[in-house]
Design a protein around this nucleic acid. Structure first.
Length: 421
DNA sequence: TCTGGGGTCCTAGGACCC
DNA sequence: TCTGGGGTCCTAGGACCC
C-alpha cells in the first residue's frame, strides 16, 4: 500500500496557525507580486474563487473584507513544511517528499490494520505538533492514493484518512472522479478524452488498454495501469536536481538594459548560491526574457540564450558574467519586459568536475570558487551583505508587491535581517 | 492598471554514423 | 537523370506536476 499525505490548503493553513482569527473565514494566499491566488481556504473555494484567479479580479471582495488576502511568505511555508516532513519521516521507514505540501509514505512490511491506525495517528500528530490539517489517501498505487486523498479531504466522515483497499471501493471512487482530476491527466489530455466521451476516471479505466496505447502515449498507459491497481510509477530515485531556475515577474515593466543586467545578475547569483548549497556545478547557463503576454496591444518577444562553459561553474562571478553575456545576446531595445530569469543545467557534482584540457583560467577559477565560498560564509550571517557590483543593492525580491505579508513567525532572525537590509 | 515560480518527463525530428 | 537503410544520440518544445 501507498499512503499519500497531503496538507489541506497548505499556505492558508500556515497563515492560520499564527493568526487563528482567520479560522472559519474565506482566506486566500497570493503568488509573488500579489499576482494571483495560489491557495484557498474551504470558505473561499465555496465562494467560487478559482485557483490562479488574478488578484485584481477579487480585489473588491478583499477591500470590503469579505475575503482576506495574504501575500505569500515562502520562508514561513518552507519551515512549516519541514516540520511536517520531520514528523512523517520519524514515524515510518521511508518517505518521499513530493512537494512542499505532499509526501508519499513507504509502508512496506506493515500489515493492513496497522497501516490504517498508523495513518490516523499520524494525521493527529501532525495537527497537534504543527497545527496543519492533513488528508491521507491509502491505496495499492500512487495514482489511486491520490484519488483516495481527495475523498479524505472532501468528506468529513473519513476523518482525514481514506483507503481504497478493495475493488468495489476502487470502482466507486473512480466513477465519482472527473477524468481531469486524475494525477497525470492535465488540461489538454482531459479535453481530448472528454471529446471521446470519457468524463470520469472509470470511463477511462474501462477502455481497453490497447485503445489507450494506440491513441495516447506511454504516460497515459501508466496512468491506466495505476487506476487498475498495478503500481508502475516508481519511487523517485533521490537524484540531484537536473536544473535550477530563478526568475521573477516585475511589478513594473522594464525597458532599460542596465536595469535588466542588475536583475539578471541577481537571478544568476541566486542560481550560483543554490548550486553551491547542494554541491553541484553547471555547464550551461540560460537567460530568458518575457514581454507581457497579457498585453495584446504591445509587441511580444520571448527570447532566451544559452551559453556553455568549458569547466562546470558554481562561482557567483562566473555564473553572473555568463548570464549577463547571454542577456546581451538577446536584449533588444524597444520592448517592455515583464519577466526575466536564469536557468542553470547540465549539472555535475562539484567533486567530479572535469577540467578542460587547455584551461588557461584554472587559477582564476579556483580563486573565484574560494571567493564565492567566503561570500556564502559572510552572507549566511548578514544576508546579502556581499554581492557583485552588477547586482542590485538589496534583494531581488525587493520592489515586488507584497502588501499583505505575514510576519516571519518561525524564522524571526531572518525577519530582522530583512528589515535592516 | 493589475495575471507566479520551479521543476520533471516524453517525444518528434534532426544530426550524425557506418 | 538516377541518390539506401538502419541505427543512436541530442535537443527543443510540449505536457504535466505542485
Amino acid at each position: 500500500m501507498y499512503a499519500l499525505v497531503d496538507c489541506n490548503n497548505f499556505f492558508v493553513s500556515c497563515e492560520r496557525v499564527f493568526r487563528p482569527q482567520l479560522e472559519g473565514k474565506p482566506v486566500v494566499v497570493l503568488s509573488n507580486n500579489d499576482g494571483c491566488v495560489v491557495s484557498r481556504s474551504n470558505e473561499s473555494k465555496a465562494m467560487g474563487i478559482k485557483m490562479g484567479t488574478p488578484f485584481f479580479q477579487i480585489k473588491t471582495l478583499c477591500d470590503s473584507g469579505r475575503v482576506i488576502a495574504c501575500s505569500s511568505n515562502y520562508a514561513l511555508y518552507g519551515d512549516m513544511s519541514s516540520r511536517v516532513m520531520t514528523i512523517l519521516s520519524d514515524s515510518v521507514p521511508k518517505i518521499e517528499v513530493y512537494s512542499i505540501d505532499e509526501a508519499f509514505l513507504d509502508l512496506k512490511g506493515l500489515d493492513y490494520n496497522e497501516i490504517l491506525s498508523l495513518c490516523r495517528a499520524l494525521a493527529g500528530k501532525v495537527f497537534k505538533c504543527v497545527g496543519i490539517p492533513v488528508s491521507i489517501g491509502l491505496a495499492p498505487t500512487r495514482t489511486l492514493a491520490k484519488v483516495a486523498s481527495h475523498f479524505a479531504k472532501k468528506y468529513r466522515a473519513y476523518n482525514g484518512v481514506c483507503a481504497i483497499d478493495n475493488d468495489a471501493k476502487r470502482i466507486k471512487a473512480l466513477s465519482l472522479t472527473p477524468i481531469g482530476d486524475v494525477w497525470g491527466i492535465g488540461r489538454k489530455l482531459a479535453s481530448k478524452l472528454v471529446e471521446r466521451g470519457i468524463s470520469t476516471a472509470l470511463d477511462f479505466a474501462e477502455r481497453p488498454q490497447s485503445w489507450v496505447q494506440e491513441n495516447f502515449n506511454i504516460t497515459s498507459v501508466r496512468t491506466w495501469e495505476e487506476l487498475h491497481g498495478t503500481a508502475c510509477i516508481e519511487y523517485e530515485k533521490y537524484g540531484r536536481r537536473k536544473s535550477i531556475c530563478t526568475s521573477r515577474s516585475f511589478a513594473e515593466m522594464v525597458t532599460d538594459e542596465d536595469e535588466l543586467v542588475a536583475k539578471v545578475s541577481d537571478f544568476a547569483a541566486s542560481c550560483a548560491k543554490k548550486l553551491r548549497k547542494e554541491g553541484s556545478a553547471a555547464y550551461q547557463i540560460t537567460t530568458f526574457l518575457y514581454t507581457n503576454r497579457f498585453r495584446d496591444d504591445m509587441e511580444q518577444y520571448f527570447p532566451s540564450a544559452t551559453v556553455r562553459v568549458p569547466v562546470a561553474a558554481s562561482s557567483t562571478q562566473e555564473v553572473v558574467s555568463e548570464a549577463v553575456r547571454a542577456l546581451k545576446i538577446i536584449y533588444r531595445p524597444g520592448y517592455s519586459y515583464k519577466k526575466a530569469g536564469v536557468i542553470v543545467d547540465d549539472l555535475v557534482m562539484a567533486g567530479q568536475i572535469q577540467s578542460a584540457m587547455f584551461d588557461f583560467d584554472e587559477k582564476l577559477r579556483s580563486r573565484q570558487d574560494r571567493l564565492s565560498e567566503l561570500m556564502d560564509k559572510v552572507n549566511s550571517e548578514n544576508s546579502g551583505l556581499l554581492r557583485l557590483a552588477t547586482q542590485n543593492p538589496g534583494h531581488y525580491s525587493d520592489g515586488i508587491r507584497c502588501e499583505h505579508r505575514s510576519r516571519l513567525y518561525t524564522t524571526s532572525m531572518d525577519d530582522i535581517i530583512q528589515v535592516k537590509a
